[in-house]
Design a protein around this nucleic acid. Structure first.
Lengths: 247, 247
DNA sequence: TGGGGAGGCGGACGAGCGTTCGAACGGCAG
DNA sequence: CTGCCGTTCGAACGCTCGTCCGCCTCCCCA
């Protein structure tokens, strides 16, 4: 695992208004999670939150900076004091979310615990963060391939690091001739990440119960003795109606 | 279940170039799936396919009609002979895909078979269609809330009907005090639909094997005796770093 | 008291967007 | 041959977008 603990390095080559990008490092060792921070940071965080909500609602490309200006009550041009471009804004949101999530998992997971307990911890944190920050997570899922160049690579790296955490847990859990590791792990991710598609606070269970139910389902499933016997009748190859195979 | 078998009704109020929208009804009883169709239909289908690929790659809003014109080698204005607007184009893609998928499931599922076999059939069809028409499915997932008004409602209805098919199967499978029906079903959908995010033909299993592995995992999981004991240590409520609960 | 920088704003710019219009082309019916 | 109709196109319209420029207002510190 490459030491991805650089606080702000690489891409921040220029110097926007406040010399560089000020204190918002993702790996700073501040113990209490709610430090007062500077007024600049406060405001930036507020902008990120509003922007995430708008990106989630309308999609990144359809949302305009003017929309964000209206929501934050900052003028169009005034916003550019806080980020360099619309892409930069998206990057800040994605990096902040993934960074926070990764940090939380790492500090909560105890390697000495058995894999099952770690799986439940992981899922609990993942789902509660997901449901608490739904807009941000939708942006994370939907606009994952918008960013290019260095920022894109940075977010991609965070994502891969995050996935690796779960991959390792699942790998411990997986019996000899169980399902394929990637299939099981990303299947589990799908189960969790699909949530923003259907979950409604007023009729579905809260995060911790969802995590429990999904964890149980997954744990029982992955421990299947041999396999639940694929059952004879699959279905014929059935040609695509899209005229050809569409690859 | 409301009789949602109307062939094309409601929204097609106007009359675009060829009188109305010609033969492409989703419930027409043509037995061989590969009818030659008219030249107009051929060309429209080709446009839909190209457009879906572009929408999948760049996202609906970022993709321009000019992009589609370039891909199809039809002039910008010439395209408007085949659809009324960009939204209409998206609608045609979504309706076609959901309609095809739903139709296939309905004709493949035999109510006399046990629930487990039906689950495997459903998953096999779903996953193979997904992987064969990846671009279209990405569009279906990503741009599901772009359409408004009548077209939006129509696609939404297809989606709900499709979900209901799986909901009913899972409901049969689910034991007394098993997981919540919606959680289990949409968890399963998530497992399958997340695929376009990670699956790569050159390293991951093909659709039918994926379907088998996921089905086994799910079947063993949902049949868990009591439950796999939620294990003492969850995690504390842990306040969102997004300053407040972000609801 | 005065100078300077952080923070903010109105207004404009060029580019790209979806859509439309009127004209042209080719084959078939009269 | 003449006229029509399905099909295609070039060129433009009006609009919204991201971004930038210059100017203003405060407040802090010397």
């Amino acid at each position: 695992m490459t030491a991805t603990s650089d606080t702000s390095g690489s891409s921040d080559t220029s110097g926007s208004p406040p010399s560089e990008r000020p204190t918002s490092g993702s790996a700073a060792p501040e113990p209490p999670a709610s430090a007062p921070r500077s007024e600049y940071d406060e405001k930036l965080l507020g902008i990120l939150r509003s922007a995430a909500a708008i990106f989630a609602e309308k999609g990144y490309h359809r949302a305009s900076i003017r929309d964000i200006a209206a929501a934050t009550e900052i003028s169009l041009s005034g916003l550019y004091y806080y980020f360099r471009s619309k892409e930069d804004l998206l990057f800040l949101i994605q990096e902040h979310c993934f960074g926070t999530l990764l940090e939380r998992q790492r500090s909560a997971l105890d390697p000495k615990q058995p894999a099952e307990a770690r799986l439940r911890t992981f899922m609990g944190i993942h789902l509660s963060y997901f449901l608490a920050n739904r807009a941000e997570m939708k942006v994370l899922s939907h606009e994952s391939d918008v960013l290019t160049g260095t920022p894109g690579r940075k977010v991609h790296g965070l994502k891969r690091a995050y996935a690796r955490v779960l991959l390792e847990i699942v790998d411990e859990l997986r019996p000899e001739k169980g399902p394929d590791l990637r299939t099981a792990t990303f299947g589990l991710f799908g189960m969790m990440n699909w949530i923003y598609t259907w979950h409604r606070d007023d009729r579905d269970a809260p995060a911790d119960r969802l995590a429990d139910e999904m964890a149980t389902l997954f744990l029982e499933g992955i421990r299947a003795p041999g396999s639940a016997r694929p059952a004879a009748g699959g279905q014929p190859p059935s040609p695509s109606i899209w005229r050809d195979g569409r690859r």
